[in-house]
Amino acid sequence: MEPEISNQSLLFLVVFVLIPLSLSYFYQLGLNKNIIWSSLRGTVQLFAIGYLLTYLFELPAIIGIPFMISIMLTVAAFHARKKGKGLPNVLLYIFIGLLVIEVSVLGLWLIFDMVAFTPSEVIPMSGMVIGNSMVAMGLALERMKNEFKENNGRLLAALSLGAKPSVASKLIVQKTLNAALIPNVDQLKTIGLVQLPGMMTGLILGGVAPVTAIKYQLVISISIFSSVSLSAMFITLAMYRYFFNEQGQLVDSEEEIRSEA
């Protein structure tokens, strides 16, 4: 028998939403609207995607997979762009980065016969790779902006000693990559010990044998690990130079002065 949650049971999820909602109400956190909106939005999105996936899974792979992956890439790129607000061409860089990573990972899965080219396998797994890469790019962009602000003095010192922007920003690039990769490294270290990863849990709940589920989990975990590393590295190396101009001057400090004017 296929395990299934009844619609009535699902309705009781409202209780889980009421808990943070009452906390927000009593402590006046001002999150009420946000909690209700995100819960409703999440529910609608998931049902919509459920129906869409059912439809896509029935389509020929060659149509369903590229269609869904294009949607995922576009949504992910627009979402990650918010963290890089103000940086030129950031949307394009994010989109290209995600596209190259997704195509490479998918290519390797297919070449080494880890995943079958069917929508039911490729779409959920690609979603995990794209989603995690999107988060990594967003984190890297946010961190990089902060690091440039916080290390303004050190950057000026390095530039004033004759360093080119690529050398002066080495420290920033290192710190950014570290910050973007550490959560992922930690997650990989404790995988299966602290929490059973989502995909494996899903497969086990769906009736798949744990060892088979683990194999899929390994494929996705390692793929995510490498795509997250690549995403953070790609976006950091692509964007750091926009903090400088061609004369090796910090663009940020120039803007500050202009805004004072």
Binding site: G153, A157, L161, G162, K164, L171, G248
Partner: peptide
């Protein structure tokens, strides 16, 4: 070249801003 100019014209800032 800005690298050459900055080498010849050294700057010491108010804060030491040492590198780790």
């Amino acid at each position: 070249p800005f690298t050459e100019l900055r080498k010849r014209v050294g700057l010491v800032l108010q804060e030491p801003n040492l590198f780790p």
